[in-house]
Design a protein around this nucleic acid. Structure first.
Length: 324
DNA sequence: ATGGTTTTTACTGCGTC
DNA sequence: GACGCGGTAAAAACCAT
């Protein structure tokens, strides 16, 4: 399940020179006797010679320079990459000056000027292309991490990354955090795929506050003209039911309650989660597998009051249909 | 910002184990 | 007495305008 948590790496290309210097522990590979190196980025200890992963540990910390509070975020990520070995150019890329002067300060000939202009264009192209790549990698890693924390399937991650890519292409990023946008993409993707997660659940695994996610989400949806219907209450049912250990029968009842409610138009404007929770509760009563309201409210993250209100409405709707 | 709607919070009373 | 449940009023959150 947590296979893909490790996609965080930024490219380690050009500087082989200083990599292996810091670990002086005299450990050797059980396979080939080669030297071991700890790869802190992945939380692994690997053999330099044969690549055997000797110790694979614990916590995936993500890129270690990421910010954990907003101040830090401003210091670090907001302004772009910190200088780090994790990036192939240490975050320092070159620009070609705009003055048409040579190294001695003399003006260039017109032919030279044209040439420099072309170079500038291409340099810029490559540079931004590559910063987008890095940005993307970062975001996809983040999406992956959150998706697995929420138990969302691969296809959701796929859609999330597609959405993110589009956001990136449309230049929606400036002024917004990568975290925020990737979280929103995931949220949107989950809803589109019919396996919605509530904002609360999402924000629990994201490094971003709920408000920001909501804001960014709205923005992204609007700009990208994604059409996302309000979540279908039924899509929450299986999850709640299984969290509560209810039978399939109960689950079916819950569904049918929701169906009749929908046909009566009871559901519009109400929170889908609340409806689902109420249906599950009502169903548990109907099939004699009683669970308490507070149990339901806990797994659904909804207040008991809301469950009460909704489930009355659901039962009324059901009765109304039965009489006709 | 505003107003209307929904959800939450906090509190109370009732019946049952 | 604790627990599950129901109801209510006021506060808070949410959403469209």
């Amino acid at each position: 399940m947590s296979e893909n948590l490790r996609t965080y790496t930024t490219e380690h290309v050009d500087d082989e020179s200083e990599t292996e210097s810091e670990n002086d522990e005299e450990l050797h590979c059980p396979e080939c006797g080669g030297q071991l190196a700890s790869d802190t980025e992945h939380g692994e200890t690997v053999c330099v010679d044969c690549g055997l992963v000797v110790e694979e540990d614990e916590i995936d910390r993500g890129p270690e320079w990421r910010a954990f509070d907003s101040k830090e975020k401003d210091n670090k990520s907001r302004v772009g990459a910190p200088t780090t070995n994790m990036m192939h150019d240490k975050g320092l890329s070159t620009n070609i000056g705009w003055q048409d002067k040579d190294a001695y300060g003399k003006s260039l000939s017109s032919r030279q000027r044209e040439k420099m202009q072309r170079l500038r264009t291409w340099n810029e192209r490559f540079r931004t292309r590559d910063s987008k790549e890095r940005n993307l990698k970062q975001a996809l890693g983040e999406i992956d991490r959150m998706a697995s924390a929420l138990g969302l399937p691969d296809n959701v991650r796929e859609t999330a990354s597609v959405i993110y890519r589009r956001a990136l292409d449309e230049d929606l990023l400036p002024g917004r955090s990568i975290e925020g946008v990737s979280t929103s993409s995931l949220y949107a993707a989950a809803r589109q795929a019919g396996t919605p997660r509530s904002l609360d659940e999402i924000s629990a695994v994201s490094r971003v506050e709920k408000d920001e996610i909501a804001r960014t989400y709205r923005y992204v949806v609007r700009e990208l003209k994604l059409e996302i219907q309000p979540a279908d209450p039924e899509s929450y049912v299986p999850r709640f039911a299984s969290d509560l250990g209810l039978s399939d029968e109960a689950e079916r009842r819950a569904r049918s309650l929701l169906d009749t409610a929908k046909s009566q138009g009871i559901h519009s404007g109400k929170s889908p989660v609340g409806l689902a929770a109420a249906a599950v509760y009502a169903a548990s009563l109907l099939v004699n597998e009683k669970v308490t309201q507070s149990d339901v409210s806990e797994v659904a993250n909804i207040s008991e009051v809301t469950i009460r209100n909704r489930y009355h409405e659901l039962l009324e709707a059901e009765d109304g249909v039965a009489l006709n």
